[in-house]
Design a protein around this nucleic acid. Structure first.
Lengths: 201, 201
DNA sequence: GTCTATAACTTGATAGAC
DNA sequence: GTCTATCAAGTTATAGAC
């Protein structure tokens, strides 16, 4: 049985999707293969006809998301714009990924430390490489006087963390429109990055 | 046996401390009572002479931290300063708590959703109440024209999230002095809040 | 591919001797 | 308060019939 719902959705894909949902709702460790089997209406043992292990589920979710960020970074890096404009675009990408793929983004953010050891190392290397590129852009913008002279690694950490509350289940989408969220947060962060006049008391 | 190390540190306190460490390192669900027993050099069953359950450990860690925030909020709220100045002070408090109590702060941030159901409700109420007060301050500062006119709830979520990377094990403290971190992050966020001239392209 | 049955193990917690 | 012994329930994953 390949087709599940007339739209090219294989049972394997359904399993990965429901796994992501469960990992988000209950956490990776608290999610059992029995929980997952129930969601996709199979007996627990039948899952293993489609996947190798529970760890493989987390792996695919986390690395798919990591690849999404890496591809976006490479595209933006290759563009012919100022460093500040690239930073603005990256901030938009972060918010948009969080808004459009809330499930996998949450798992990516909160559950990656449960990856099997060897994959964990690879995951952390990917993140480090992504951060390295982002920091280079911040530094470049600082050298051009466009961004405040604060340690770029510290700025990056603060910026990336600031998106972690964006995990729309339903409530967020009711309160604010997506475009409004993107613009409001982007404005706040870029206002901070470029405000070289502010002095702490 | 009441005294453990000549400094009023009871075995019970030691258990709570090591529990927080483990919950941070491995996550609440992934930490077993056997792990904890090993850390405090007891047999697993002996733990139950000091505590009632695993959930009680998480409970105390989370609510101690929540109370810390609530007390700080009430102190600052009672002061005779502008709303913006109170916001600045609250931002400092958030960073300082993250720096001085990294273990319990991380557990508070990442593991609260594992609280037993009844305590979970109480925890979420406390957080909601804290946010309500913080939002009122932002709104007041906006009415005085001191803070950018962006939805205050959205600003608060973004600000509070932005501190979540501050979890010093060892590496952070080597790179930056605490005072430097407080000032750098405070400057960035307040620069953003008060920069009413910035326009997105 | 899906099932039943089950292996092999870990979990939080308790009973009762000392 | 700490121990040994143990329980009942839950865990991931496999074997083999259909």
């Amino acid at each position: 049985m390949k087709e599940m719902n007339g739209k090219g959705m294989t049972r394997k894909m359904l399993i990965f999707e429901e796994a992501a949902r469960l990992f988000r709702e209950k956490g990776y460790q608290a999610t059992s293969m029995r929980d997952l089997a129930e969601r996709v209406e199979l007996e627990p043992s039948s899952l293993y006809s489609h996947i190798r292990s529970k760890g493989e589920l987390l792996q695919k979710i986390c690395f798919d998301c990591a690849n999404h960020f890496t591809v976006s970074m490479d595209e933006i890096q290759a563009g012919h714009t100022t460093a500040l404009e690239k930073i603005r675009k990256l901030i938009e990408v972060h918010i948009e990924i969080a808004l459009t793929k809330p499930t996998s983004t949450t798992v990516f953010n909160d559950e990656w430390k449960n990856l099997p050891p060897h994959k964990l190392v690879r995951f952390m290397e990917m993140r480090k490489e992504y951060e390295r590129k982002f920091i280079a852009l911040i530094r470049e913008a600082q050298e051009r006087g466009e961004v405040i002279p604060v340690d770029p690694e510290l700025l990056l950490n603060t910026i990336i963390s600031s998106f972690r509350w964006i995990q729309p289940k339903t409530s967020i989408k009711d309160k604010w429109k997506s475009e409004q969220i993107v613009r409001a947060i982007s404005r706040f962060i870029l206002a901070g990055l470029t405000n070289r006049n502010y002095q702490l008391p």
